[in-house]
């Protein structure tokens, strides 16, 4: 499954959920409603997996954390207060799991992943081969982009993803990361600089325009 196919389905589901009352969502989570959980897993699978992959830089670990995150959602659903967006809460759970795991490995925090000297390269090999057409169109460009992303420290990858892929607001990001707003901003500026330097010279396609 690729971005295109996943996004088509999830966009529809996403808009459906956006219309839902978050309080109803919170109630469903408190009840541990299996139908609701199934729907949420499907709906957020791409976004959560991508976030975890950006954090852990490993598909295998991202997959394990993905499952573990949903187990936590099941167990701690009653803690979702419906004041924040569900995805912020979900990402915060995922982030905590990754940090706990890092601590178990005697690493103090996610910051340890950030040092470019010890940073883990982002590993995004495709397990399911995309269609031949997709391969022809995007193979080279994507390989370049993925390689470039791998050169960016995880802590910057994370904020870049939350801001520019998840389109989260700065306060929301600060909430997910439990970090002051000023830190989020400074990481974004540095991340943007790192992204620009890391990206291949040839564009993926199209002319420049406002982001």
């Amino acid at each position: 499954m690729t971005l295109t196919s996943t996004m088509t389905g999830s966009t529809l589901l996403y808009s459906t959920l956006m219309a839902d009352d978050t309080k109803a969502l919170a109630q469903g989570l408190r009840r541990r409603d299996p139908e609701l959980l199934d729907r949420l897993i499907e709906q957020y699978q791409y976004r959560l997996f991508r976030y975890l992959l950006y954090l852990t830089a490993s598909r295998e670990r991202a997959e394990d954390f993905f499952q573990e995150t949903w187990i936590r959602v099941l167990e701690r659903g009653h803690q979702y207060d419906a004041k924040s967006k569900f995805e912020s809460w979900l990402f915060a759970i995922a982030r905590h799991l990754v940090i706990d795991w890092q601590r178990q490995k005697k690493v103090q925090s996610l910051e340890a992943l950030t040092d470019p000297e010890v940073g883990t390269p982002l590993e995004i090999p495709a397990q399911n081969e995309p269609s031949p057409l997709h391969q022809v169109l995007h193979k080279e460009a994507e390989a370049g982009v993925q390689e470039s992303l791998g050169r960016i420290p995880a802590i910057y990858r994370e904020v870049l993803l939350l801001r520019f892929q998840e389109e989260m607001g700065l306060e929301e990001i600060a909430g997910v990361m439990e970090t002051p707003l000023s830190t989020v901003k400074s990481r974004l500026y540095r991340g943007l600089e790192a992204l620009k330097s890391a990206m291949p010279a040839s564009p993926l396609g199209g002319q420049g325009g406002a982001a």
């Binding site: 791409y46 997959e63 399911n128 943007l192 990206m199 993926l204 420049g208």
Partner: peptide, 19 residues
């Protein structure tokens, strides 16, 4: 333009989901 290109590339990055 370079900044926008970089951001567009970032947004267009496809992550294949495990089966």
């Amino acid at each position: 333009h370079q900044t926008d290109r970089a951001l567009r590339s970032l947004r267009a990055t496809a992550i294949p989901l495990p089966a």
